[in-house]
């Protein structure tokens, strides 16, 4: 327990603790407004044309907000000192070595994927995917107000990515990872000598494949088959779904690829935790 308390009260982890309160608060705040809109309908044009002068009305708000934030920052800065540990020493590696807190979701992904995926490809795809959002979301509704009913899919995907795959992984990486990047529950003491037996096996092994070339081919089939879900779904639903026709082929390919890639992370996590799967696809050049 004392290790967990030490982590929670560590000055540099104050933002994570703050996030634990801020995120639920803002989810609640937006949910309440969304439910209001969904019940009573979108505010009418009359309300929109109600214009006010920026000076004094907006400037006053900005000023008050700035004062409150500076007050919080001032108290925070007086109460809690920025950390300064011993001088840097390349020969003395701390265990665990953690990246800054906002990168811990990425470091947490390293448990499940090799560095080239977790550290390079997935972050790159997160950025590309975020930028792509306005161009692939063709739903014109829900612009400028909170709503759930009018865009459930977009909200579900983004909230899952942001809250579960970014915030929760960040919190896990910060508070629940100890020496050797082993998982420690809050009440467990950190044991630097803890040895967790690595019983992970490749997915092909679980299917009884022992020969490298066959395993390589098997992995390729599984990964290609997974990403083929997108095109197959398209061909199956293309005729009957008006939404797919409006979306168009190019947008659909981008959406399905990004969506399947995002889901690959929780799928791999479940496979690792439940079946001890190490790699899905082992090839001579890379492992997935």
């Amino acid at each position: 327990m004392e290790h967990f308390i030490a982590l929670v009260t560590k000055p540099d982890n104050v933002p994570i603790v703050a996030i634990l309160f801020l995120i639920p608060y803002f989810i609640w705040l937006s949910y309440r407004q969304a439910r209001q809109t969904d019940k009573t309908g979108v505010p009418s044009d009359a309300a929109l044309n109600d214009k006010v002068y920026v000076w004094p009305y907006l400037c006053r708000n900005e000023f008050i907000c700035a004062i409150i934030v500076m007050l919080v920052l001032g108290v925070w800065s007086i109460m809690i000192d920025a950390p300064l540990e011993e001088p840097s020493d390349p020969t003395k590696t701390p265990n665990p070595s953690k990246a800054p807190w906002y990168f811990l979701a990425l470091q947490e992904m390293l448990v499940y994927f090799d560095p080239w995926i977790a550290g390079v490809v997935l972050p790159g795809l997160i950025i590309a995917g975020l930028i792509a959002i306005p161009y692939i979301d063709i739903n014109p509704k829900g612009k400028g107000y909170y709503t759930i009913k009018e865009r459930p899919f977009a909200l579900a995907v983004f909230s899952f990515g942001f809250i579960v795959l970014w915030i929760v992984l960040m919190v896990v990486g910060t508070f629940l990872r100890g020496p050797g990047w082993n998982f420690f529950a809050p009440w467990e003491a950190w044991d630097p000598h803890l040895v967790v037996p690595l019983t992970n096996v490749n997915l092909s092994y679980l299917f009884g494949i022992r020969e490298a070339d066959t395993a390589n081919f098997f992995g390729f089939v599984v990964v290609a088959g997974y990403f083929a879900i997108g095109p197959v779904f398209y061909l199956w639903k293309r005729k009957s779904s008006q939404f797919l026709q409006e979306l168009g082929l190019v947008r659909y390919i981008v959406v399905s690829f990004l969506f399947l890639t995002m889901l690959a992370l929780p799928i791999k996590m479940v496979l690792r935790v439940v079946l001890n799967v190490k790699y899905i696809w082992v090839s001579p050049w890379f492992n997935i």
């Binding site: 950390p83 020493d89 390349p90 701390p94 953690k98 990246a99 800054p100 550290g119």
Partner: peptide
Amino acid sequence: WDQLAFWAVTVGTNM
């Protein structure tokens, strides 16, 4: 340039 800084950046750039 303390241990915290050095190793956080080492880990962050290792990828």
